[in-house]
Computed example of a mutant assay.
Amino acid sequence: ILLTLRNTGFLGSKKGKGGGYYLLKDPIEIHMTTVIRVLEGPIAMVPCVSLNFYEKCDDCPDENKCAVHKLMLQVRDSVLEVYRNNTLADLISE
């Protein structure tokens, strides 16, 4: 996980005595949407509602008429609302 966070620009590293990992940005600037996408991938539970990783579902003939699609849009938007309104600083302070 640390290497992934370093390779995606969240962490820097220092070798030697007193070395280790450190944040490259202030925690208040790091939104949870970005962290989740880096660590877990798409936020959406199904690919047909993903903002960044969209894929059409193989078994769905029409997304506009699909009740599951409509529900998953609501779920995605609710989850995004929570992630967008929280930063790494919010997690650290709790």
Rank of each mutant, 00 (worst) to 15 (best):
G20T: 11
V79K: 05
K17A: 13
V46S: 07
E55M: 12
S13T: 09
A89W: 10
V49I: 04
T4P: 01
G18I: 06
L73F: 00
Y83P: 03
N85Y: 02
P27S: 04
F53S: 04
K15E: 11
G12S: 08
Y54S: 01
G41H: 09
K25P: 01
V46T: 13
G9N: 10
M45L: 14
C48L: 02
A89Q: 08
K14E: 15
K65C: 15
G19S: 08
G12H: 05
L73E: 04
Y54A: 02
D62N: 14
P42K: 14
N86M: 14
N86K: 14
P42R: 15
L51V: 10
C66A: 12
I28V: 08
L2R: 10
Y54G: 02
K56P: 00
A67M: 13
A67Q: 12
L39P: 05
T33C: 10
G19A: 05
K17Y: 10
G9H: 07
L2P: 01
A67V: 14
D26C: 01
I36W: 15
H69C: 04
T8N: 06
C48P: 05
M32G: 01
R76Y: 06
K15C: 01
V38M: 09
V75N: 02
G12D: 09
G9A: 08
G18T: 05
Y21K: 07
L39R: 00
F10H: 06
H31W: 03
L91Q: 02
A44E: 02
Q74W: 00
L80C: 02
G16P: 09
C66G: 09
L39N: 03
D26K: 03
A44W: 04
Y54P: 01
T34I: 07
N52A: 04
L3G: 07
D26E: 09
S13W: 09
P42Q: 11
H69G: 01
E29W: 03
E55Y: 08
H31A: 09
E81C: 06
D58F: 09
V75Y: 07
S93F: 01
N64E: 13
N64D: 10
G12K: 04
C66N: 12
T8Y: 14
C66H: 11
V82R: 12
G20H: 12
I30G: 04
C57I: 12
G19I: 08
I36Y: 15
I1V: 12
T8W: 10
I36Q: 15
A89D: 03
T33A: 07
L39D: 06
N85E: 09
Y21Q: 08
P61G: 03
G18M: 06
L88Q: 00
Y54H: 13
H69M: 05
P47R: 06
F10N: 05
K15M: 07
K70I: 09
K56M: 07
G19M: 03
K65Y: 13
G41F: 05
L71S: 11
Y54E: 06
